[in-house]
Design a protein around this nucleic acid. Structure first.
Lengths: 184, 184
DNA sequence: ACCTGAACACCGTTCAAGT
DNA sequence: ACCTGAACACCGTTCAAGT
């Protein structure tokens, strides 16, 4: 990658992070290009779709979540590990606004070949490992599906975004959810 | 209202219902005006905002939900009444696509003065009556808030929209939810 | 009193011309 | 190899002119 190309790439990601955080995932791409000081064609060359740009913005956080999930497999209490990961997931989910909606969207099979689709699948797999461990320990109903659960977590994220205190709302909903997850 | 104005109003609502159902709540307003055979200014005269138009499209369904909730207050089993209403609510919620997101949005206090905001509040109040009865019967935890619950129901609706079988997903999530709602 | 549609602004996306 | 920005299409919204 040429030096100017790399610099433009970095500037676009940084600028997009700010724009998405301020105006949600639907922020104007033209504005982002302008603020990054590049032509709009350059943005499209590096990021053919809005989702590709959002993926670049979220990549570090996603990697962190995957690492956190694997680390929690060593936590002695499987139910506590699952709960802690879901809390962490939702703590970041309400920003940039719209992220949870996009994640739900790209969980569909037609998105599997895209970067964000693959990322969503990796998150689902990581959650699946925590879930399965909790299920084997008898702490969570056996029939709960990891895809269902990730969709629901993101749904809670969507609802929390428009709430005065997203973290508090998410916590209350997770408390309810864990009541339901426990083997009856 | 003049005869032509009333006719245009009806045509716009009917056309919008089709367009929203086909393309989601973000469907092109210009297209709707064109297909209804009116100038775009006429659409804006009757419906100053997209939400006003969506409200007109949803009005009958909303009235039905409110009536259903009141009727269910006579159902002997308070928990079953609450469950049945939530199931009915979610059965219709995934169409037009985007409706649940809008409802969550207009539940914010800044929307109270709008038509859809008032409708969301009426729905919250109706759900609140069913919820309170279930709580008094000891079937549902006392600390659950009707606004939280309606937001969560719509969140489940958002997640179900992008699912191959929205009804089945919503049912599974409601089953989980009721596990959590029951007084522990 | 109500309607029309041209006009304007804004945004996504492509691509010919440039370095 | 990469960048620029003009050009095009599309949409929301307003408003002067019309009936």
């Amino acid at each position: 990658m040429r030096a100017d190309a790399r610099r433009n790439y970095e500037r676009l990601v940084t600028t997009a992070r700010t724009a998405f955080t301020e105006h949600g995932t639907g922020a104007s791409l033209d504005e982002i290009a302008k603020r990054a000081g590049v032509g709009s064609g350059t943005l499209y060359r590096h990021f053919p779709t809005r989702d590709a740009l959002l993926h670049a913005v979220l990549r570090e956080r996603i990697d962190g979540l995957l690492g956190h999930a694997d680390a929690l497999l060593a936590e002695p209490d499987p139910e506590a590990a699952l709960a802690r990961w879901l809390r962490t997931y939702l703590a970041g989910a309400s920003s940039p606004r719209g992220t949870c909606t996009v994640i739900i969207e790209v969980m569909g099979p037609e998105w599997a070949a895209t970067g964000l689709g693959a990322a969503a699948d990796a998150i689902r797999a990581a959650l699946g490992r925590l879930l399965e461990r909790a299920q084997r320990a008898g702490a969570v109903r056996a029939e709960v599906d990891p895809g269902d659960l990730l969709r629901l977590a993101n749904a809670i994220g969507v609802a929390s975004e428009r709430t005065p205190d997203p973290g508090a709302y998410a916590d209350r909903m997770l408390t309810l959810l864990f009541g339901g997850l426990r083997a009856g």
